[in-house]
Write a protein that binds this DNA or RNA. Sequence first.
DNA 1: GCCGGAATCGCAACATGTTTCACTTTGGCG
DNA 2: CGCCAAAGTGAAACATGTTGCGATTCCGGC
Lengths: 209, 209
Amino acid sequence: MRTPTTSDGPAQGTALARSQAARRRRVLDAALRLAERGGFDAVQMRDVATEANVALGTVYRYFTSKERLLLEAMVEEIEALAARLEARPPVGTTPADRIVEVLSRGTASLQRHPEVTAAMVRAFGAADEADVVRRVSDIMTGIITGVMHDGPPTPRDLAVARTLQQVWLSSLIGWVGGVDDPARVVVDLETATQLLLGDGAIDGARAER
Amino acid sequence: MRTPTTSDGPAQGTALARSQAARRRRVLDAALRLAERGGFDAVQMRDVATEANVALGTVYRYFTSKERLLLEAMVEEIEALAARLEARPPVGTTPADRIVEVLSRGTASLQRHPEVTAAMVRAFGAADEADVVRRVSDIMTGIITGVMHDGPPTPRDLAVARTLQQVWLSSLIGWVGGVDDPARVVVDLETATQLLLGDGAIDGARAER
DNA sequence: GCCGGAATCGCAACATGTTTCACTTTGGCG
DNA sequence: CGCCAAAGTGAAACATGTTGCGATTCCGGC
């Protein structure tokens, strides 16, 4: 009656655990494959099950809802993104530069699979899945605090990072909802970063290099 | 085949137009009534139809989807909110004060009917209804620019207002999604406003009055 | 190697948003 | 007044997320 992910059954490494991990992966991959072309609507639970060679009930044993499925996929994606960014850190000299760089690269990465991102963001916007949603937000915030400066982030850093994360998400929602064009996401993030970090003036024409 | 709201049929004021307006209103009210207790899920299209004394098909003639129905209700609510705020403007002396006041009052107003707001925000987060979504965002942004200072908003004002609107929405999503508690919305907005308008320092303990 | 229980399967049923369609009502207009 | 196209009705059908359940398979401990 418990989710298989809840650890306490057979120790990890056992055959059961392995086959379960494999199933879970197949389901996630199937969802991603379907999302790739067609976004949220194309991820139909029956198709996910079929594509993953698994019974529909099994999908629901691993993921209690479609939104949760997509959100857990989102956690993985954002985590991978965070890892890539950490592996090749931004080169900017000021915190603002580094933040903008990291957010731009992250957004570009998301936009490389627009339908997948659309599916995930839509799940995020509607979800009644507080815990996973929080996990996603936290990772996004972490991406930002991670490039601010050495040492632990100050309370102000945290506030700035949280604000930027919120702008990031709103922008993504605007983009996948068709309200704004994709480029707008990055523009919004640059603008917000500048405003928050009190860089230069914003007067229609951005000034620096 | 056209939405009745599309004006070009009989001139406004005619009996037809009046009965249509009445129907539309009944549908919106029914949706609000249902949302009031039970939020998004309690707004079931069949129930909306019944409660509005209208056929299901008619609901869909006026509103092409459940989300659109809720979003148009949201437009009305936010417009009403904007009007109330304009009728009794904030009294703060600095723009930041006025913005925080306006956003706090607005949020408080939304939180007075949590389920209704939850329904609307959820529709917003998931919607594939670019035009209405944009309308909602624009009104929210207008609420902010409206209290910044006399005269037309500068480009910088617009950027600040947009950013705050994005923070507002993200916070609302966090609240209705159960990620954050209600008070967090206002806190986020105060924080963001201070950061954006470079008021005081943020160091854990807010300083001023 | 065998057993018991958990995990999976297959499939049907249910809930609800959305569409369709044939029929009826209604309001504007000649 | 009487006609008719548009609007509305009622009910069924469809699409898809979600749940339930009996039959089957698989794993780990004995």
